[in-house]
Every structure is written in structure tokens, then in C-alpha cells.
Design a protein around this nucleic acid. Structure first.
Length: 106
DNA sequence: GCCCTGACTGCTA
DNA sequence: TTAGCAGCCAGGG
């Protein structure tokens, strides 16, 4: 809706929804896409503010930490996130996502 | 308008 | 390899 500038939250959600199935992006990458290279923390803050309703629409599980590490403080639990990613065909190596294969920017 | 919090990141010991 | 610290950004009280 023009005239209503999307807040930082909406931008984060939109960027997350752009992540194709079977791919993952890091907080830093998302922040960079939003024009805030060092706003990884802000991205985490936005995802944390996700409402249960939004959680079903936003593939939050496709967002991982630097190096493909699963955020240890994931709201729904790192196990659930890892499980969802595996269901999408994402491979884990040593408990980390292989960004070389599934990264948004391989 | 100030202070605190937070699902991060990178460096150093 | 693991642990701790400081820096960065945005929202809420």
C-alpha cells in the first residue's frame, strides 16, 4: 500500500519470505539486503517480534546465524528449526547448514 | 528523549 | 575449541 512505508519489521519479513525453499540466509545477509550490513541484531529482534500468526507465513526457520549455525536462542527451539530445514532438503554438516550448497549467496 | 533489551557478529585470550 | 567482550541497529517503556 503506497503511502504507508513498511517498517523495518515488514522489510525483514518480506526478505525472509523471499528465501526459496531449501535455501537459508544468515542474519547478516538479511541485514545487508535491508541496507543495514551491521543490523543482524535488529533482524533477530524483528523475527523475535514475529506473532504466531506471522510465524506461519514467514519461513523464519530459513534464517540461521553466521556460518550456518542455528541460533541457540531460537524462539521455537533450534531443534524445530533444524527439523524443518531437513524436511526441505537442507543438509547439515557438523550441526551447521552447508551455506556453500543452501546459502542464499553460495 | 533516554535507557534497556535482543533468535547477531567478529575479534581476542 | 571454548568463553568473554564490545559494537551495531531498531523497538518498547
Amino acid at each position: 500500500m503506497p503511502g504507508a512505508p513498511p517498517s523495518f519489521f515488514d522489510r525483514v519479513y518480506r526478505a525472509v519470505r523471499r528465501i526459496p525453499r531449501g535455501r537459508v540466509a544468515t542474519y547478516g545477509q538479511l541485514a545487508q539486503l535491508l541496507g543495514v550490513p551491521r543490523g543482524a541484531r535488529a533482524v533477530g529482534w524483528a523475527l523475535r517480534a514475529l506473532s504466531p500468526r506471522r510465524t506461519a507465513r514467514v519461513p523464519w526457520h530459513r534464517v540461521v546465524g553466521a556460518g550456518g549455525r542455528i541460533a541457540p536462542r531460537a524462539g521455537a527451539g533450534p531443534e524445530l528449526q533444524r527439523r524443518k530445514l531437513r524436511q526441505e532438503g537442507v543438509r547439515f554438516t557438523g550441526g551447521r547448514v552447508d551455506l556453500s550448497r543452501h546459502g542464499l549467496f553460495p
